[in-house]
Design a binder for these strands. Sequence first.
RNA 1: GCCCUGGUAGUCUAUCGGUUAGGAUACGGCCCUGUCGAGGCUGUGAGGCGGGUUCAACUCCCGCCCAGGGCG
Length: 366
Amino acid sequence: MFKLVAEQENARTGILKTAHGKIETPFFMPVATKGAVKLVSNSELEEAGTKCIICNAYLLSISPGTKIVKKAGGIHKFIGWNKGIFTDSGGFQTLSEKFLIKADEKGVTFKNPFDKSTSFLSPEKAVEIQNLLESDVAMCLDDVPLHGSTLTRIKESAERTTRWAERCKNAHKNKKQLLFGICQGGLNEKLRQKSSKEIAKIEFDGNAIGGLCIGETNSERNKMVKVSNSQFQKDKPRYLMGVGSPKDILECISHGVDIFDSCFPARIARHRTAMTSKGNINILNARFAKDFKPLDKKCECFTCQNHSRAFIRHLAKTKEENSLRLLSIHNISFVQKIAKEAKLAIKENRFDKMVKDFKRNKQKVF
RNA sequence: GCCCUGGUAGUCUAUCGGUUAGGAUACGGCCCUGUCGAGGCUGUGAGGCGGGUUCAACUCCCGCCCAGGGCG
């Protein structure tokens, strides 16, 4: 299922075996909430170096519904993606006022975002949906406390997440599908440690770190990542949910994380920001009007091989949506390249140097 | 030559005899991290020129300049 290949201090590279092939870690999953990464086609995703994406099981269960996906022959056939697919349970949507109506021990009641109906999601239901979708990796339903929650609330959510994790494990029937547990614990070291230990004990196929990237500082996040990874089995994949940026990914790889997912690269692309080795740039800036260089000098993505900053800026200025697509392709490629280079660097025992070079190269922080 | 209308940031425009002259766009900056979000926040920047009335004028009056329209 998961095999460690090489390590350098806490950083590791390995191979995750799924029903749709082996995926080398560390890897980054672009977010395809409703079955597609916004503005980017599947072939463009592949060309960008994507081996795995993550969809949202809860949202897919509302539209088009599990029946249609099943009839299509499973989620891979439905969305036309033959590589890895994780599905998120919907737990993260509890953070959004637009979704949450109430959450208690039984599960979560959500507003349906597409109409005015409501739906109920229990741990069992979340697993059942993901079983029916036939994703490669299913995620447990967790109870995520908002950033800044009281200790009482963080404790409640962590304990409930463990109970829900056990229920998810018992409900999981799809033998071809892996199931990952998720820890909580907010920013409290003891609760985070306890939660991670409890999740590890249930013996999932992989362990995820949840409840981060919701407003905490980088050092707070890194601390929690270290705490969780210290409790997780070394021979199981570790997935940090919600990260992110090149810098964050590199930092967390150095703390032993194997898998990442985030809407960040694609979202900031839609907001006209391009990631470069020297920091993020806002392509709308006047200084790019006559800049005929690619977004990033060393990038080999479709965008950088074919188009200049000046052209992309021109498209963005004139509100041509293709500009956002080109930026999305670039940012996803950029992050994929970081993950790929990290993998090689760990194998060659020079990952620490890679991180140092990366940070030195930048004029500002990502 | 005469008449009319109008001159407010780089551009377009709102309002007003008295508080920080509002907005759009442009320019600059910041943010976004298990997505219903191609979004959000923010900074710089303005009353053609000269005179008059008034306690007080971007605002009312006069002249000039400029622009647009009309008549000859």
